[in-house]
Design a protein around this nucleic acid. Structure first.
Lengths: 199, 199
DNA sequence: CCGCAACTTGCGCGCCACGCACCTGATGCG
DNA sequence: CGCATCAGGTGCGTGGCGCGCAAGTTGCGG
């Protein structure tokens, strides 16, 4: 039947997760960066149409719920790099993979600005971005044919890439940014690869 | 009088902070990576010889208390780089500054391993390490004479350096590490500076 | 020697994570 | 097609915790 790569069951689960996360972010934006404490778990659950008890079957903190999207995105970092053509130079592959991953869809500037200007949320987002490092390091190691366990190069590069993405976010959210996120991302990422061609 | 660079009052404050943090880490180690929930705030406060209420005048979560040392250390990252001789090449200055900062004193392997193998603590430690990026970026920008606000190079490099430190920690804590932390640190940091001399 | 300001502490409130038990609806099988 | 099974949603109860408030205490400067 309708096993669209997923049981109906799992589908609903994913939908619920998204609903809760969506509601959480929305409410957080309403309250502003200094009103995080006013976003009650009860409100989130109600807005998402589930029981408060169900809410923390999915998340164990407001921050986690609000940043769930970033977390999900980071989980795909490894796969994003792996799906680049194998004959592409490493630097180009990484840059294009990250641009593809983090601009699809174009990030919600309002939501991101809210997150990055709220210390507690910033911490959670940091965790989320860092989740990308492991898979990224593996993918890089696979591409360069090095051994992840004995050669720190891939791990360091993965960390640097993740860092560059975060820095790009900060610049893009800053006051004087008329450029697209993709542009900023390419610029910061090219700092990581000193031998990278200017384009 | 006895203004040893600090009022007696501020000295006690610092001592209390350290006592609480110390007690927290000690108790956490006792309970192991899976028993973080069993480390009650009450126990920490008692062990530190203060009231539970006082405890969260200093910290607002167990995790924050346990990782306070890492946080304090990261705050000094900028200063560490600034205090390197001005005629030193950037890469060497950064490497030596970080080695100096993170091996003085030699890190507590047991405590660190505990922290890095406990998800919630790992997140907090991540926040702590990331606190170093801002000051580091400023110091790097100052050294290279670039404008931090319009040129992302220093920010990206700072993030990469912080990442390299974290990666070094992971490798050093891993099973087959007979080397000193300084050695591992130098190796990962030199990955960040491709033009860095082998020694 | 005195008053101020900083710090600690006890009290109390509201929120929240989580275990437990029950219910509902999806799933898979004969 | 109907039944046994089970994953997931929900209500309830409990213990812990963050934090505001209002004293009490102690170092510091005049």
């Amino acid at each position: 039947m309708n096993d669209d790569a997923m049981n109906l069951r799992a589908r609903n689960k994913q939908a619920t997760r998204e609903a809760i996360s969506r509601a959480a972010l929305h409410l957080a934006i309403e309250q502003g960066p200094n009103g995080l404490a006013l976003v009650r778990v009860n409100d989130i659950a109600t807005a998402a149409g589930v029981s408060p008890r169900t809410y923390n079957n999915y998340f164990s903190s407001r921050e986690e719920a609000i940043c769930a999207f970033q977390a999900d995105q980071s989980r795909r970092a490894g796969q994003a790099l792996c799906s680049r053509p194998a004959d592409e130079p490493l630097s180009e592959a990484v840059i294009e993979a990250m641009v593809e991953l983090y601009t699809n869809p174009e990030p919600d500037k309002t939501g991101l600005r809210m997150i990055m200007s709220t210390p507690e949320l910033e911490g959670e987002a940091l965790k989320a971005f860092t989740m990308a490092e492991g898979p990224l390091a593996e993918a890089i190691a696979a591409r360069t044919g090095t051994d992840l366990r004995h050669d720190p190069h891939s791990a360091v590069m993965a960390a640097a890439v993740a860092g560059a993405v975060r820095v790009a976010g900060r610049y893009w959210l800053g006051p004087g940014s008329t450029e697209s996120f993709a542009t900023v991302l390419r610029r910061t990422l090219s700092c990581v690869f000193p031998s990278a061609p200017p384009d």
